[in-house]
Amino acid sequence: MDRALRDEIKELLIRALDLRGRTAAEIEDDAPLFGAGLGLDSLDALELAVAIEERFGVSMPDGEEGRRVFASVAALAEHVRAHRAVE
């Protein structure tokens, strides 16, 4: 588990998606980002993909794999860690 990376992704989420009033500490690592969780939608997913690619140089997958990667902060961090490591 990469604490620093997860926290960085939470900060990125708040900034890129304009989650005004939220703090990184409030966002749980494994909480669902979309639907019930943070209440994000597919437009947010597109924005988040751009923000992550810009920040980490890691592109986000589409389709079923994309759904897995966008499931939570933990899943996002794992995807970023794995693909940064390859480069």
């Binding site: 890129a16 998606l17 437009l43 947010d44 597109l46 924005e47 751009v50 690619e53 810009e54």
Partner: peptide
């Protein structure tokens, strides 16, 4: 500056 792939989809609307 950053190319077409870096524009903000959520900002556009």
């Amino acid at each position: 500056a950053s190319g077409a792939r870096m524009v903000s989809p959520a900002e556009f609307p």
